[in-house]
Amino acid sequence: MAPDDLLPAPCLLCGAPRGSRGHDGWRCAACGWRVGDAPDPDLPPPRIDIVYYVRWRERIKIGTSHRPRQRLAAVRHEELLAFERGGRDLEQQRHREFADLRVGGEWFRADARLCAHILAVGEGAPPWESFARWVAEAYRDR
């Protein structure tokens, strides 16, 4: 079956409605979580540190968070461009890498080099799908 079939129910982990059926049952197309499995409610959710890239007009913010939904709700932006798995060290590395484009704080000019980097780290996947996949992998690795 195609990976865009409707799941019997939305994914318990990320809420995505689509997936595919394999030898071990249904799997979410967004995060890969197996339908029917449930995260252990007695364990805290895994911590996934990410570097985020958001756009506001002709500027791009490079920031980090382990709670991206809450963080992005507090950051004024027009578009979420990408997530990159990593924490403060990676964020600081990116700030150094694009220091010549800095316009203030964590904001950078949206030039071709930075935009190409964002496309490469995003790997063409929607940022929230990447995050959901990383969360699912962390749950499976426990």
Rank of each mutant, 00 (worst) to 15 (best):
D141M: 14
A73S: 10
R94L: 13
V103L: 10
W134E: 06
A2K: 14
E58S: 12
L81R: 01
W128L: 06
G63V: 09
G86M: 05
G36N: 00
V51P: 06
F98M: 01
H23I: 11
H117P: 00
S130R: 14
A82F: 07
R85C: 05
C14F: 02
G63M: 09
Q92M: 08
C115L: 15
R21A: 14
E78I: 00
P68A: 02
P68D: 04
E97T: 07
L101W: 01
G22E: 13
V54W: 04
L13Q: 14
W26C: 02
R18A: 13
A9R: 14
A136H: 02
Q93W: 03
S20C: 11
V54F: 02
G32C: 12
G36D: 03
A110H: 04
E79P: 03
E79R: 13
W134R: 03
I60K: 00
M1H: 13
C11M: 12
A112Y: 02
R76E: 11
D141P: 00
H77C: 02
D111E: 14
G104S: 05
R88G: 00
Y53F: 14
R140C: 13
W107I: 09
R88N: 06
Q92R: 12
Q93A: 07
G63D: 10
D24C: 07
R21L: 14
H95D: 05
H117K: 04
C11Q: 10
